[in-house]
Design a protein around this nucleic acid. Structure first.
Length: 739
DNA sequence: GAGCACTGC
């Protein structure tokens, strides 16, 4: 390689490399001061209003039928409709035709498959139409019917559930919420007439609490099963058990019960694992509609993938035909750094070359700016989307023909032994790398540039570790107990969490008095499980009655349920810090957050005020939704939600301490803080109002290890409060005697 | 002195 110049060499590439001057120093992770964000406050997020679940009028009926007919022309050409169904694939994933496949359509085979088997695993690539069509097939053949029960289709994400329901309602020819509908948090477009219901997996878990055998459904379709979210994994175990129970009930001749069909849908080829778990369920493969993607790996390992990404972007830009580029990076900071560098270099491009438009994309970005990613690039311009993992599953962008994959991602972890969460950069799995690659082949043949060598790819884990094995299970275990699963240690998990992790969750629930020493749910535990909250928050909310500050506690819990009520454009960090100071309460973040909400109410949510104070309007709206929902739950459970602490703000903090007594730290003589549980040195996150302050004791909302053990959501507490907050926990400790 | 992947009830 020439001195002072840098090229990234990929496998299979021809030799004419585009060379730009070595920018290694420029690419260092410096904080970018001149970002590209223009407006501070985002646009209000207008959540689509659910249509009222009514039967269509005669006129509507006519329009609906016309639309249905139009859509049918498209539907009938989908692979899942008339394509091939394969019973098996060879080791490369290439389908092997079997004789049955030739005699009937894919549709008929799928129907037959579900009719003849209690559980079916369907593997289909993106574009096969499985998620929209299969529920309709099952409705048309009568497996889903008013007599037998409805069809539930679970999705890991809200947007997917709502948009799929809208589409399928049109295809079926019904008004949304009537025969086809959806149920997600804060938004329900379903009725007793709904036969196909799309819902988030979390929502089905909640329905399980009141309908323990899911009797209103005859089929449960678990979609996107390969993602292995915590909730999908919990559903696996629960529906498997329910299926067995209902089968036995039918065999005993009980009335008003039919067997439960389970359909597991997955995009990847790990179907054997699902099949094995579901007692050898039948596997069916549906062909998809993905275009081929040519993969390049670097010849040498890259020490700085950000730098390598920058060079690769220009290599593609100068030498490859039209088509937008999607770059996978790990986080906001990297994205902002690369956006700035790209803007800088793009300005130096010769005038005969098309322009380059960087578009950052990450979850914390305000919706108005996320929207820019979807707008087609201006004439003679190539769009470069710089994204986190959000573009791997949650957001699909059209026009992408080139993917650059850095091979790493930030992953949430949980060390059950010491009970600490972490957020660290980790190599992705092969399946994740394939998923990223596939983003280049959705509309035409594409190209994927991996910024790591082929042997490195070979050494990656096959699949991402399921979430259930790397998170705090307290909420999940409480949910299981409330749904009637007493023995959570021997529950039928597809991937069993470690014993340490389960024990820790049980211990935590015991310390919160949610379960007794036999592991049985207490009265308080039952109440805690009702709330759509982490058990710790539920505990605080229940305890707030004694401290007479339920109103404030509900507000603060709602505020803590979003990442941040502020929005920080990269070039306005100082201004944001300045704005935050206006709300600071000397006792810390809990009461500071409350001040933000109070101020927001005082100005009645004025948009200009929000802009001036860098208030994240999308998140404030979520806060208000959560708050309203919590008030509703309180009313239902006989908790007076309007009780206010007035000026007794200590009571608010004492309430929080009754749940968060384990999340406390004491000031050491050297000025650092040491956690009460575990005795670790922790640092207050720079985003906290308590940053740099020294007080006797602090309580924090969360502890996450990134570059250090950082605590966020921090407030001052008095050491003397600790034994009062958790007598069972601190009763014999030194702290209690000192106090 | 200095920083927060993504979902969901």
């Amino acid at each position: 390689m020439a001195a002072g110049a840098k090229v990234v060499h990929f496998s299979n590439e021809d030799d004419d490399q585009f060379i730009i001057h070595d920018n290694k120093h420029a690419a260092k992770r410096r904080r970018v001061q001149n970002g590209v964000h223009e407006s501070a406050a985002d646009q209000p997020n207008d959540r689509p209003e659910s249509s009222r679940p009514k039967a269509p009028t005669q006129k509507q009926e006519k329009d609906l039928q016309r639309k249905k007919q139009e859509l049918f022309e498209f539907r009938k050409n989908l692979p899942v409709f008339t394509g091939m169904i394969y019973n098996c694939v060879d080791w490369l994933g290439v389908p092997i035709l079997t004789s049955i496949s030739f005699f009937s359509s894919a549709r008929d085979q799928i129907i037959k498959g579900v009719q003849e088997n209690e559980t079916v695993v369907i593997v289909g690539e993106t574009g096969s139409g499985k998620t929209t069509q299969i529920p309709q097939f099952l409705l048309e053949c009568g497996i889903g019917s008013p007599g037998r029960g409805a069809i539930a289709v679970t999705q890991p994400r809200r947007v997917a559930a709502t948009s799929l329901a809208k589409r399928v309602a049109e295809e079926v020819g019904t008004t949304l919420g009537y025969r086809v509908g959806y149920t997600v948090r804060f938004d329900d477009a379903s009725s007793q007439h709904t036969m196909i219901k799309y819902l988030t997996d979390g929502m089905l878990l909640r329905e399980l609490l009141s309908d323990k055998l899911l009797l209103r459904y005859s089929v449960v379709i678990l979609d996107e099963a390969h993602e292995r979210t915590l909730r999908t994994d919990m559903l696996f175990g629960m529906v498997k058990e329910i299926q067995q129970t209902r089968k036995e009930m039918v065999q005993r001749g009980e009335k008003d019960v039919c067997e439960l069909k389970i359909v597991v849908m997955s995009a990847t080829l790990d179907a054997e694992k699902f099949s094995e778990y579901f007692n050898g369920a039948r596997i069916m493969y549906v062909s998809g509609r993905l275009f081929p993607v040519k993969v390049y790996n670097t010849i040498e390992p890259q020490s700085d993938y950000l730098d390598a990404a920058l060079v690769t972007i220009f290599q593609i830009h100068m030498r490859r035909p039209k088509g937008d580029i999607l770059v996978f990076l790990t986080g906001q900071e990297e994205i902002e750094t690369l956006t700035a560098l790209l803007t800088e270099y793009a300005g130096q491009l010769p005038s005969n070359v098309q322009a380059l438009l960087p578009c950052p994309l990450f979850a914390a970005l305000p919706p108005a700016q996320q929207q820019k990613v979807f707008e087609p690039a201006p004439h003679n311009t190539r769009k470069v989307v710089l994204a986190t993992n959000i573009a791997e599953t949650s957001i699909t962008i059209s026009g992408i023909r080139y993917v650059i994959d850095c091979g790493v991602a930030k992953v949430r972890g949980f060390n059950a032994k010491i009970g600490v969460e972490s957020l660290l950069v980790h190599p992705i799995s092969k399946s994740s790398a394939r998923q990223r690659m596939g983003r280049a082949g959705r509309e035409a043949a594409g190209f994927c540039y991996r910024l790591y060598t082929e042997p490195s790819f070979g050494s990656l884990e096959e699949n991402t570790i399921p979430e259930i094995k790397r998170c705090n299970l307290a909420a999940a275990v409480l949910n299981l107990k409330a749904a009637g699963v007493h023995d959570v240690l021997h529950f039928d998990y597809m991937d069993r969490p470690s014993r340490t992790s389960l024990s820790r969750a049980l211990e935590q629930l015991y310390s919160l008095s949610a379960i007794d020493d036999k592991g049985t749910l207490t009265q308080e535990g039952k109440q805690m499980a009702e709330f759509p909250l982490d058990p710790v928050f539920s505990k605080v909310l229940i305890q707030s009655q004694q401290y007479e500050c339920t109103s404030e506690v509900i507000s603060i819990i709602s505020l803590l349920s979003v990442d941040s009520v502020f929005f920080t454009p990269p070039d306005k960090r100082d201004n944001v810090a300045e704005a935050k100071k206006r709300f600071v309460h000397p006792d810390g973040d809990h009461l500071t957050l409350l001040n933000v909400l109070k101020s927001y109410w005082e100005v009645k949510g004025d948009k200009e005020w929000c802009r001036e104070n860098f208030i994240n309007m999308r998140n404030i709206k979520i806060v208000l939704d959560v708050r309203n929902q919590l008030i509703q739950f309180c009313t239902r459970m006989g908790i007076v939600s309007s009780t206010s602490a007035g000026n007794e703000t200590d009571n608010i903090l004492k309430s929080f301490l009754s749940g968060f007594f384990q999340n406390t730290a004491l000031l050491q003589p050297d000025g650092t803080y040491k956690s009460v549980v575990g005795g670790q040195t922790i640092s207050i996150h720079p985003g906290s109002s308590m940053f740099g302050k020294r007080v006797e004791a602090i309580m924090y909302n969360e502890l996450v290890f990134t570059t250090r053990q950082y605590v966020r959501g921090v407030s001052t507490v008095q050491g003397a409060w600790l034994p009062m907050a958790a007598p069972k926990y601190f009763g014999n400790s030194k702290l209690a005697t000192n106090a």
